[in-house]
Amino acid sequence: MMKRLQVLADMVPSGLVTADIGTDHAWLPVLLVKQHKAEKVYACDIRKGPLHQAAANIVTNHMKKEITLVLSNGFANVPQDAQCAVIAGMGVHTIISILDADADRTAQFAILITEANDDPIAMRQWIAAKGYRITDERVVSENRHDYTAIAFVPAKTEVHYSQSDLVLGPILSQHPDEEYTAYLKRRTHKLHHILSLRKDESADTKKLQVEASIIDAFLQDTNNKQQKAGA
């Protein structure tokens, strides 16, 4: 979990009042304060149980002045001075439901960071459809699970993302590192396995076929470039 949390902490801009939505034990708020990324953090959760656990962690780390607990369903009770929101460790549909529940409040943040444990394509599609611009992306693999963290901001001008951008990530695909390439290989292997079991021509099957073909072409192109560079 520490690796995943560090990726999120690295993506949070320094000095912004940050709200961690679904904070659980408040590990991220504690990390942000400890690493001097934020002097004020809201640890938010919809349930009292996690907030009790978060309170204990905050006291242990002597951060009661810097971290404030907030009982909140999504953004409902998040104070207005929060400039950055982080929603991590959830399924993409849960994340999107939180963002959609109060669209006006969502748009007020200077930056939003999501880290879904599934379907980054759906997350990027939502970002594009709602008029945001992706500014950073990271892939992190932990405990045999893949997470895609995406940072985005309100777009000042219209942004167009191609199908390849939505599948591969407009930032990730520009600088493919070993972890990202390994993730794509795992993803395309899974896709081809699923498609080998399907005999239908449904819209969902065609969507998976498009995703697989885009990833396969990207991996082949990346491999060709690496071979030329090493020649």
Rank of each mutant, 00 (worst) to 15 (best):
K3R: 12
L5E: 07
L5W: 04
L5C: 11
L5G: 14
L8S: 08
M11K: 07
T18S: 08
T18H: 09
A19R: 00
I21C: 01
G22L: 12
T23R: 04
H25Q: 12
H25Y: 13
A26C: 06
L28E: 12
P29T: 09
L31Q: 13
L32E: 07
L32G: 03
V33Y: 07
V33L: 08
K34R: 14
Q35A: 08
H36V: 04
A38P: 08
V41S: 03
R47D: 14
K48V: 05
K48C: 01
L51R: 00
N57Q: 10
N57W: 04
I58L: 04
N61R: 04
H62Y: 13
M63Q: 15
K64I: 15
K64R: 15
K65I: 11
I67V: 10
I67D: 04
L69R: 01
L71N: 14
S72G: 09
N73W: 07
N73C: 01
F75D: 05
A76S: 10
V78D: 12
D81F: 12
D81G: 13
G89T: 00
I95M: 09
I96P: 00
A103K: 14
A107G: 06
A107I: 06
F109C: 01
A110G: 13
I111L: 12
L112N: 11
T114I: 14
A116N: 04
N117S: 03
N117I: 03
I121V: 15
I121T: 14
I121E: 15
A122T: 06
M123D: 13
Q125D: 05
W126P: 05
W126N: 04
I127K: 02
G131R: 05
I134K: 06
V139D: 05
V140L: 00
E142Y: 02
H145E: 09
T148A: 09
T148R: 03
A151I: 05
F152A: 06
P154F: 00
A155D: 02
K156A: 11
K156F: 06
T157W: 00
E158F: 10
Y161G: 02
S162W: 03
S164H: 10
V167L: 13
I171C: 13
S173T: 15
D177R: 11
A182Q: 12
Y183R: 07
K185D: 02
H189F: 13
H192Q: 08
L195H: 02
S196W: 04
R198C: 04
K199P: 03
A203S: 12
T205A: 10
K206D: 15
L208N: 01
V210G: 00
V210D: 09
S213C: 01
S213D: 09
I215W: 06
L219N: 04
D221P: 01
T222L: 10
T222E: 10
N224H: 07
Q226I: 09
Q226E: 03
K228Q: 15
K228D: 13
